[in-house]
Design a protein around this nucleic acid. Structure first.
Lengths: 202, 202
DNA sequence: TACTTTTGCTAACACTGTTAGGATAAATAA
DNA sequence: TTATTTATCCTAACAGTGTTAGCAAAAGTA
């Protein structure tokens, strides 16, 4: 009896509709104006149906946050794989990938790190965040090993790297001033910071 | 007739009560649970009275954001004045001041840069923000001049500095993981990043 | 056909920011 | 002192928000 399977498939479809509707709203109107009632309207179901698929609103946000971390990790892994054996180039490429992800997918990035919005407890998205850290730490450790700099703490360097990246992006996202939104300058800052970061490890 | 003056004074007192009540709530329960109704309850007035003193909720937030920028600027100016003639030491001291302000006054910092909350349009707090930039740019320009590095763009370096600082802090504030909240490591990252930043300008 | 389960709705609860309109108190004018 | 105006302040509502209890109808099973 494939009835059960059809039902499961249909249920999954509704869940997918919820996610799609939510994402469309976020993309056009921002996280601020995402509401359960509007989602229900968009999928042409009543409000409680949404609670059959998600425990609460936060669970919907968490879904997007997890997806965001996966996308970021994938894109950074791609960048890394293009420069095997050259950790410095890997770091540079991964910084660019990070930057591009954040700029092209501001809504995901905003949610993942709670920029200008009440974010879900991103601690719950931790597994995804950890794989990002592991990925980023590898070329840093490689570079340290390559330069025989046993005095350098890789964990510390990873945090520094992340801080520059995240600071630059979140200032850009939250800021409205013309200076801050000069993407050419921002790219220069990024390049300068990362090249300085690499130089300090050689 | 001092009646008018007394009335103005009393009105100012109520406004002050609103600010105090709001701040107490934020300090004990966070920005998330600050509401007009709770403020009204705390000051023992009805809700609309608050709208006699503030146009809306955002105006209350803006008040705190401005105050935050003033406090930050004051504390950084103090740090700067303790190392006149030594731009590198000034930068280091100002970084520490920035860090200390953010850590001891998380609520102000959160609001000023919209970390984990829907912030007011901080563009409106711009005058206060500009004086912060001017203050921070001076020692950077001094250091560049001192080291005769005419190839270095001070504006770019200022952004780099700010990005590291802000990134480090906002990751710490939004994060819940144990690693991220290891203040000793964070301080090490800060020191390392700033010393690298200074080294790159010599 | 009768019973059970699933599905999805209406309507409510407890909140939020914001405002219209009226009542009371205070200051001024007759 | 009384009447009138003005400032003060509150009640009650509007339009939202997330969330859930409870019921009606549809679908599947005995």
């Amino acid at each position: 009896m494939g009835i059960l399977e059809r039902k499961l498939r249909q249920k999954e479809e509704v869940k997918n509709d919820i996610i799609c509707a939510a994402w469309n709203m976020v993309k056009t109107e921002g996280w601020q104006s995402l509401s359960i009632r509007k989602i229900a309207d968009a999928i042409e179901y009543s409000v409680p149906v949404i609670y059959d698929h998600f425990e609460n609103k936060e669970a919907i946000l968490l879904e997007f946050a997890k997806k965001g971390f996966k996308m970021l990790t994938t894109q950074m892994l791609e960048a890394k794989d293009m420069h095997v054996g050259n950790p410095a180039a890997q770091i540079k490429a991964m910084a660019d990938a990070y930057w591009n992800f954040a700029i092209n997918d501001i809504e995901h990035y905003q949610l993942m790190f709670g920029i200008g919005m009440a974010c879900c407890e991103i601690g719950k998205a931790m597994p995804e965040q950890e794989s990002f850290r592991d990925l980023m730490m590898e070329p840093i450790e490689d570079l340290i090993a390559k330069n025989k700099r046993t005095d350098i703490n890789s964990c510390l360097k990873y945090h520094t790297f992340w801080s520059v990246m995240h600071g630059l992006i979140s200032i850009k996202i939250v800021g409205t001033s013309s200076i801050i939104n000069d993407d050419e300058l921002n790219k220069m800052v990024l390049d300068d910071a990362i090249s300085g970061f690499i130089k300090n490890m050689s």
